[in-house]
Computed example of a mutant assay.
Amino acid sequence: IHMASHTLPCIAALSCLLLLLSSFSQCQAQLSPTFYNNTCPNALNIIRTSVRQAVSTERRMAASLVRLHFHDCFVQGCDASILLDESPTIKSEKTALPNLGSVRGYDVIEAAKSELEKACPGIVSCADVLSVATRDATVAVGGPSWTVKLGRRDSTMASHTIDLPSPFDNLDRLISSFASKGLNTRDMVALSGAHTLGQAQCFLFRDRIYGNRTDIDAGFANTRRRNCPKETGNGNLAPLDLVTPNSFDNNYYKNLLQKKGLLQSDQVLFSGGATDSIVSEYARSPQAFQTDFASAMIKLSEVQPLTRQNGIIRKVCGSLN
């Protein structure tokens, strides 16, 4: 009897724990790397071919696709809501301030999707196309690969209220913004390394290069001013990594050590705070960065996916069927 009275609460506690774990893994369990093996066995090859073609035509497209995926997942989850065009029933995310005139790559996803529709109509979601294309684009410019779990479905609505991390955010704000999506501080620093690729518009870093601040290298600020005048040229572009702007490497972190982060949200990662040690580690070890980037991208691509009966499979990514 003595033993039984101890084991009962233990069994109860254990079953509660198992229940919690099963509900937590439910959403993960619904996504699987083999999701299309029977219904569209050539899906991954079709997407890869489209993406390789786009990136070989314009290497900058790799950065654009990574950003497109990020901007999708941070708003109501990885549901391809960002791909929906304006319509009588939809206020498109494309026209929301953080996306307007700067988010690109919609046509690459649409091209891959139209090839998939020829091969296996109505099977592969736009949300899955975007997740896979992001991985393939990263690989195409020398980045790591990872296994994308599949089975996402597409949203039937968009959200014009966009709560994305801002280029002007301080470290605490960045940490809490990523935490709200289930991404920890290390994930945040690794995902920021996507800024080893791509470009930023002048108005996003003008204050930083003209502010005579202590957290920016003077020579670097000077160089950046050439293409970003004090009063004009808001849309002028500058590479986020001046050294190797179209190659996926750990140079972004080396830049931060030298106070050569272009955006405030870049440099705050190495500014005497909680993330300094992670930045130093990635600057030393490209391998550590690539490994962590891949695992953070997997976590990002699994933020609140629509699965099973939720959502739809869009035939064209820009509109509802």
Rank of each mutant, 00 (worst) to 15 (best):
G122Y: 03
R225F: 07
L197E: 06
A218W: 06
V51W: 02
A194S: 15
Q258W: 01
L164H: 12
G182T: 15
I109M: 02
K315A: 03
L320T: 09
N251D: 09
K94N: 04
A288W: 00
L204K: 14
T307K: 04
Q76M: 12
N255S: 13
Q30K: 10
C317I: 05
S92P: 07
N170T: 12
T275L: 08
V66T: 11
L65C: 06
L197N: 06
S23H: 12
S102Q: 12
L83E: 04
D207C: 03
D169P: 04
Q76N: 14
L320I: 15
A274M: 08
K181W: 09
G122E: 00
K299S: 10
L171Y: 05
D169L: 03
A12S: 15
T147D: 15
L116H: 01
Y106E: 00
A13G: 15
P121W: 05
D217T: 07
T7Q: 09
D276T: 10
A137V: 11
L150H: 02
N99L: 06
G77S: 11
P229C: 07
L83C: 07
D85V: 05
L240K: 07
A80D: 08
L171P: 03
C228F: 03
L21K: 08
I82N: 01
L17G: 09
V303P: 02
L183K: 07
A63C: 13
S87P: 10
S25C: 11
N222Q: 14
M3R: 14
R60W: 02
N227Y: 10
V51E: 07
D241K: 01
T196D: 06
P41L: 14
T223I: 12
D107I: 06
A179L: 13
C10E: 13
L269G: 01
N250P: 07
P286D: 05
R225T: 06
S64I: 00
T49N: 14
L31S: 05
F24I: 15
Q28R: 13
S319Q: 13
N212D: 09
V51D: 05
I82Q: 00
C228L: 10
R173L: 13
S277F: 05
M3Y: 10
Y36I: 08
L242D: 09
S5E: 11
S180D: 13
E302R: 13
S159P: 07
S56R: 15
E302S: 09
S131N: 12
R173A: 14
R135H: 03
Q304P: 00
N236K: 08
K91G: 02
A194K: 11
S155H: 05
D107E: 15
I46C: 04
S114I: 05
A200I: 07
A294Y: 08
K91M: 07
I298L: 06
S301L: 10
R213F: 04
S155K: 10
G273Q: 05
T49I: 11
N255P: 02
A238K: 02
M297V: 06
S155P: 11
G211F: 12
A96G: 13
P9C: 06
A43N: 05
I312C: 05
R52H: 14
S114K: 14
I162S: 00
S285P: 02
Y252G: 00
I123E: 03
I298P: 01
